[in-house]
Amino acid sequence: MVLNLVLRFLLELCVLMAFGYWGIQTGKDMFFKLLLGIGAPALFVVLWSMFGSPKATFPLSEIWHFMFEFVIFSLAVIALYATGKTQLATIFAILIIINQILLSVFHQR
């Protein structure tokens, strides 16, 4: 089901935004706001391209890939909670769970 893969891509973009928002909200002054606001999403992009994406440089076995995704997406949910966006974090977590279930049901891993 193509819509589930579209949802997956949108969730990955939301991870970028969550890390960026967390970085901007967490930084104490403008330098650290920019450093964290750009650095956290950049770190995600590097890690995702190396291990998480379908064309990853270092593809992981299925269980390790699931664990990697679990950690990355959980950190994004925690980042939203930490910045006070609890409702958004809850909705995001629910969408991640639904997406994971559908990925398994439709064998889209």
Score class of each variant (00 low, 15 high):
M1E: 14
L3F: 15
N4G: 12
N4A: 15
N4P: 07
C14V: 10
V15E: 04
A18M: 02
A18S: 09
F19E: 02
G20N: 02
G20C: 07
Q25F: 01
T26S: 10
M30C: 05
M30E: 10
K33H: 06
K33Y: 02
L34P: 01
L35W: 07
G37Q: 00
I38R: 02
P41I: 01
A42T: 11
V46S: 03
L47P: 03
L47Y: 06
W48E: 08
W48G: 02
S49P: 04
F51S: 04
F51W: 09
G52V: 03
S53L: 07
S53G: 12
A56V: 07
A56M: 09
T57I: 13
P59S: 10
L60A: 06
L60C: 05
I63C: 08
I63W: 11
I63V: 14
I63T: 15
W64C: 09
W64E: 13
F66T: 07
M67T: 13
F68V: 06
E69F: 05
V71H: 04
V71I: 15
V77M: 08
I78C: 09
A79Q: 00
A82R: 04
A82L: 11
K85I: 00
K85F: 12
I94W: 08
I94F: 14
L95H: 01
I98Q: 03
N99H: 08
N99F: 01
Q100R: 02
I101K: 02
I101E: 04
R109S: 07
R109A: 09
